[in-house]
Every structure is written in C-alpha cells, then in structure tokens.
Amino acid sequence: MWKKVYEWLDERLGLNDIYTNLLDRAEPKGNWWNTLGSASMFLFVMQGLTGIFLTIYYTPSPDHAYDSIQYIMEGVAYGWLIRGIHHWGATLMVIVVFIHLLRVFVTASFKFPRELTWLIGIGLFLATLGMGFTGYLLPWNQRAYWATTVGTQIAGSVPFIGEFILKALRGGPELSALTLQRFFSAHIWMLPAALAGLIGVHLYLIIKHGESHFPTRED
C-alpha cells in the first residue's frame, strides 16, 4: 500500500533522484572538516525555527522589547529554552561558518570550478555576521544599546559617506525606536531571505560540482 503511494509520488516528484543527488552522492574520502557546511545549515534552520518561535512573544518596541524578553525568560513555559538555543546557536553559527570558510581556504577548495561557490560563501558569512549584529540590539538592554551605538559609530567613520551610512543604519542621527524596528526587520526578513536564497545557490553548486578532494602531494 505505502509502496504504491511512494511509487506514485516518485514517478511525479522524482524522490529517488532527489535522494540520490542530495544524500547519496559520491564524496571524497570522509573527513570531519567536510561536515562543517552541513553543520552551518543545521544551525541556520535551528536559528530560523527558534527565531520564529521567539516572535510569538517578542515585540520590537523600546517600550516593550526588554519586558517582552523578560516575559519569555520567566513567564512562558520553556521560553528560557527557546531563547537559550537562539542565543547560543547564534554564537555557534558565527564560529562554525567561519571555521567552514577557513577550511575551504586552507584546502584551496575555492579554485576552479568552485569560485562562485566560494564567493557566495563569503556572502553567506557576511550575512551571518549581519544577523549577529542586528540580533544583538533586539534585547534592548544596556549592552545591546551601547554595542549598537559603537557598531553604527564605527560604520559612520567611513570617509565621505560615513554620516549617510550611520543615518541609514540608525534610521536617523540617534539610536531610537526606528533603529530597533529596522534592525528587527533586517534580522527577521531581509537577512534571512538573503541567506536562504544564497544557501540555495550554494547547495546547487555543491551538488553540481561535487565536493573537492583534499589536496595531495601532487597538487
């Protein structure tokens, strides 16, 4: 019965092909350093899910942001767990993505035909940092407020267009409700959308080219 259902679906969706290409594809000799990409994607999904759950109670307004997070931590069942995973997962994701990038650099996996995979990977790394930067403001506590003051001030030190960048980031000359709102928007819509799109292309390229083998003495 189930076999028939599966076969019917497979004929139309090509499930077996997807399985073969995604999970059963040929790999160079196993090496734990090659798992960092999958680990990054797992963390991305995890951050996405816990992040969606956090928006159920979080509110991005200076009046309520701090209180709503207090409520998540103390008032809601398992709020501490959901926020804890999101908080530590964020740190872990930056670390894992960075080590993944280092691995690709050290093993020279960015060379032909994988230059685009590498460039998109750089984009993914920058977007991950952007997620960290924008997410840091959302608790709206002293640390968040001053970290963002400093961070946007640094961006403002760019010659000539610095002041424009600073105002564009903050939504005005001062850190305000507008800053919190646009950081929230960037954190839950713009950057995740960019990440998801880039991850899609990144994965497609990896499946197309296969993973690079580690360089040997002959290389």
Partner: peptide, 8 residues
C-alpha cells in the same frame, strides 16, 4: 517544549 511554549 516548543508546543508547550506555543500554547502556554
């Protein structure tokens, strides 16, 4: 825990 968090 996520379900519990949702329906709390």
């Amino acid at each position: 825990p996520s379900i519990s968090y949702l329906i709390d």
